Simulated assay, not measured.
Amino acid sequence: SIFASGTNLDVVELWFPRLSDEDQMLAVARFNQITSVQGSAMAVALPGIVETLGTLHARSYRLGVATNDSTSGAEKTLVTLGVAQLFDAAYGYDAVANPKPAPDTIQAFCDLTGLKPTQVAMIGDNRHDLEMARAGGCGLAVGVLSGTGTRESLAGIADVILDSVVDLPDFLSARVKETI
């Protein structure tokens, strides 16, 4: 749905199709403000996710967030959840020229970290995430069922599907052992 994968601009365009461009931008700014403050205040971490992120960070993985919400909302949510310090970057739809599923966020993350796209694993719970992984040339597209996607909706585009993001450290450890 537009709420699961669209940007705040997409939502405003849907709700208020007759606004002038100026009024539409004002509405988007207000919607960004509301969703970043109220949305982050209501954020609840998936069970085990804080520990999982800590594990990945301790293993020197570079972590980033790509969302079609606002950058401010993503950053505030990371702070609310107590994990902001684990991330190199958070990219909202308003931080790049073209939001998901375009590859812009992957390119921005690679520019920041010095990684090549083939060294990046994109973990996502919907097709937009995995389409971005493919468009950006990511080395691994991991679908997770701990969000809005289903095994059926992710199967055709994911390299692997995990039940939850919390399964990621074990999966990555096993994958590294296979390549050694």
Rank of each mutant, 00 (worst) to 15 (best):
Gln107Glu: 14
Ser153His: 06
Asn8Lys: 04
Phe171Glu: 04
Leu78His: 03
Ser173Met: 07
Val50Met: 10
Leu63His: 06
Val37Ile: 15
Ala29Asn: 02
Glu13Asn: 13
Ile106Cys: 02
Thr71His: 10
Gln119Pro: 02
Ser20Met: 04
Asn32Ile: 10
Gly149Thr: 01
Val160Phe: 09
Ala95Glu: 08
Leu53Asp: 02
Ala158Ile: 10
Leu63Ile: 14
Glu13Lys: 11
Asp69Arg: 12
Asp94Gln: 02
Asp21Val: 12
Ser60Lys: 12
Asp170Pro: 00
Leu53Ile: 12
Ala135Gln: 09
Asp94Lys: 01
Thr35Met: 14
Leu53Lys: 10
Thr105Asp: 13
Leu46Ala: 12
Asp69Gln: 07
Ala135His: 14
Asp21Ala: 13
Asp159Leu: 00
Thr55Lys: 10
Lys76Arg: 15
Gly156Gln: 07
Ser72Trp: 05
Phe16Leu: 15
Ala135Ile: 15
Thr77Met: 09
Asp129Ser: 11
Gly6Asp: 02
Leu112Lys: 15
Pro99His: 04
Arg62Asn: 06
Pro99Thr: 05
Met42Trp: 09
Glu131Ser: 08
Ala95Val: 03
Thr67Glu: 00
Leu53His: 08
Ile157Trp: 03
Asn32Arg: 12
Ser164Cys: 03
Ala45Thr: 14
Gly147Pro: 01
Val160Trp: 15
Arg134Ala: 14
Thr150Glu: 01
Asp88Gln: 06
Val79Glu: 14
Asn68Pro: 04
Asp10Arg: 03
Thr80Lys: 01
Val12Gly: 05
Leu162Arg: 10
Val28Leu: 08
Val79Lys: 11
Asp170His: 11
Ile123Thr: 06
Gly6Tyr: 03
Pro99Val: 01
Ala43Gly: 01
Pro117Glu: 09
Gly82Cys: 00
Ser146Cys: 06
Ile34Trp: 06
Thr67Arg: 01
Thr105Leu: 15
Ala45Trp: 05
Ala108Asp: 06
Gln38Cys: 13
Gly92Pro: 01
Arg18Asn: 15
Phe109Ser: 03
Ala90Met: 01
Phe3Val: 14
Pro101Thr: 04
His57Arg: 10
Ile161Thr: 14
Val165Phe: 14
Thr35Ala: 02
Pro117Val: 13
Glu51Val: 08
Gly143Cys: 06
Gly137Glu: 10
Leu14Tyr: 10
Pro169Glu: 00
Cys138Val: 15
Phe109Asp: 11
Leu14Ile: 10
Ser20His: 07
Ala27Ile: 12
Ala84Leu: 11
Ala27Gly: 06
Asp10Leu: 04
Gly114Asn: 05
Gln24Met: 13
Ile157Val: 14
Ala74Thr: 02
Gly39Cys: 00
Ile123Gly: 01
Leu26Thr: 15
Leu130Glu: 05
Glu152Phe: 10
Arg30Gln: 13
Asp170Lys: 08
Gly156Lys: 09
Ala135Tyr: 11
Lys177Pro: 00
Val44Pro: 06
Glu131Val: 15
Ile49Pro: 00
Glu75Ala: 05
Thr71Gln: 07
Glu131Phe: 09
His128Trp: 11
Glu75Trp: 11
Val11Asn: 05
Arg134Trp: 09
Thr150Lys: 04
Phe171His: 07
Ala41Tyr: 09
Ala29Leu: 05
Leu154Cys: 14
Gln38Lys: 08
Ala133Arg: 14
Ala45Gly: 09
Ala158Phe: 02
Thr80Cys: 10
